[in-house]
Nucleic acid binder design. Structure first.
Lengths: 345, 345
DNA sequence: TGGACATATGAAAGCGGTTTCATTGAAGAA
DNA sequence: TTCTTCAATGAAACCGCTTTCATATGTCCA
């Protein structure tokens, strides 16, 4: 029972040093109640003395399952996803699961590569935010095939593109509908929208909510104030500049994620205009700093930390009970209007 | 060569279906030049038809190395770390390495747990931001032991606590020194600092830089305007409130990370004061939105995306050449004073 | 006293790959 | 023609762990 002088200590070393078989050591590790107390204590002592820690690789291979959960996310530096990720981590950590991370940059090729990696890594389950609207592109089958090839179940988060798996997302359409209605009630008749591309499901959802709201309020759809870019700061910035030059100005603007909102605000402030004097504005997702500084910021609030936590819980449940019916969980996005002043008419 | 009807296709299935041995299939996967073209094509066809993807688990076990890099980070929702993480991901992705993520919440217990997990997972290398200043706590040996027990090398990022491994961090002390000097040159004699706790190395570095700057400028150190909290928003907020009540007010304030800066700003704005009228202010790390909105924000700029990229490069290099001398890379933090107005004296 | 049963342990197979070593056949050299 | 060399492949061991199955020992009861 002397210290083992070796770089990589294995279960065999421990067994030998303790004078027992590998099987017994393995039992101490996995179901200690099966082994005699004296034997167990002896083995535990050897394990401790040598700082032995069993290899997850070997264990996973042997058990035919891994202890890691995969996550595929667009971009982690957007705080919406950053907080989502923290929510995920809280729960996986509690359950002693590791997290394998991959970003897809809203990009089909990277997304496929990420899925392949998750396959190769045989993750126990996958938390998946699809990069693009594969349904629209006619690639749904290809993606589904990849999901089916995974070792574990998948939960599709933040957007629904028609994949055969559990889903959890916010009710963006309804929230947009309500945003438009709130603006209409305040007297706005020309409500612009700056949105992501048609390839993005969420953009479509939001677009539809916008249309719903207009119709309900008896406002005619005007294509000239419907802007579609790519959910990125820079495209929103240039579209806003474009909008500012329009002859027939909107009186209110809705921006469809926080990067777009930032690009929009940048363009506005650069031009010397201000919110809400130039335009009434409602953004999607909060922008923490604005709130902190007391700058009015009407927005649709979505708690992504909660989204992350719930997603993992559903996934873990699915792993435990693979055969139960697939579920779609819809979280409510809340319209937070802090300073929705009336417009002069 | 018919389609294999089976859930988990293994290398043996492929071998059988192609009428060759496992060894040959393995060669096609790893060193195709060793196998005859015809055989190779046949095998590749079978692989493709069956969507076979080799198990990383099995491969890792067999090769005795894994293909994943571990990352231990305080909190991913702080954009400093978010961008750091994206930098990391860019390089690992290029090198076909997976990323195993773990947060430590600036918390010793979680940090140790994370290290143990990295050990168990046998990561190929580790990117490590230590939770606390273990040197100060007398726990350096324990941590070093954990690092030594890992399967691969470690790079310690963003702070140096005296661990035996490669390191990369910003020259915070110098940047702080320069910040203080710039304020002194502008006529400030009472410069407050809101900082993290003494347990945090970075906080100490920054503190020292602050003291250096005061001394160099012939300003006496005044403990009553040196605030120490925990690098969190809320503690900064309450310390600022406390500061505002002080009889002998400072004329300038330095805040030592972006969470502290936010807490500080919140308290300031809430009190109806404004920057830079109430206090001249220099923060550490940028706050993106302020810049966007044209709100003046003097700060020390640290490019964490770059930090992440460099860290992985060093780590990969270390994996390739384990015996070369350990390196310490110091990146320069840049003082960005956008509107450093003179104070009335 | 002997048989049934429970408890504690070990031997060995298996997880899905890689790698070493041996074997085979063909090409080139003598 | 025979010997050498090399390219292509397969058999089998191995990586570190889990798990099944068999065995040994002890306990209980008839």
């Amino acid at each position: 029972m002397a210290k083992i002088s070796k770089a990589n200590i294995t279960i065999s070393d421990i067994a030998e040093s303790a004078g027992v078989s590998k099987a017994t050591v393995s039992r101490v590790l996995n179901s200690p109640e099966l082994v005699d107390e004296k034997t167990r204590e002896k083995i535990e002592k050897v394990i401790k003395e040598n700082h032995y820690s069993p290899s997850a690789t070997a264990r996973n291979l042997s058990k035919q399952i891994s202890s890691t959960i995969g996550v595929i996310v667009p971009e982690i530096s957007n705080t919406f996803f950053g907080e989502l990720f923290e929510g995920i981590e809280e729960i996986t950590n509690k359950n002693n699961l590791s997290l394998l991370y991959c970003s897809n940059d809203d990009n089909k090729e990277k997304d496929f590569k990420a899925l392949d990696m998750m396959r190769t890594q045989r993750v126990r389950g996958l938390i998946y935010i699809p990069a693009v609207n594969y349904k629209e592109l006619g690639l749904l089958k290809q993606v589904q095939q990849r999901l089916d090839g995974l070792a574990g179940p998948v939960i599709c988060v933040d957007r629904s593109i028609g994949l055969r798996c559990d889903e959890i997302y916010f009710n963006d359409r309804k929230a947009m509908y309500e945003a438009v209605k709130a603006l209409a009630v305040d007297g706005h008749k020309r409500i612009a929208i700056i949105n992501g591309s048609k390839q993005n499901v969420l953009a479509e959802e939001r677009h539809n909510g916008y249309i719903d709201g207009l119709k309900e309020s008896g406002i005619e759809v005007d294509e000239s104030i419907i802007f579609r870019g790519d959910y990125k700061y820079s495209s929103a910035y240039s579209m806003t500049k474009q909008m500012i030059k329009l002859e027939n100005q909107p009186t209110a603007v809705i921006t469809c994620n926080n990067s777009i909102s930032k690009g929009f605000l940048k363009a506005i402030y650069e031009t010397g205009k201000s919110i809400p004097d130039a335009y009434m504005h409602i953004g999607l997702d909060k922008i923490e700093m604005l709130n902190l500084l007391g700058i009015p910021y009407n927005h649709i609030e979505r708690d992504s930390y909660e989204l992350g936590k719930r997603a993992v819980e559903i996934l873990i449940n699915r792993i435990a009970f693979p055969e139960t019916k697939l579920q779609q969980v819809v979280l409510q996005a809340e319209l937070e209007l802090q300073t929705c002043r009336l417009v002069k008419m």
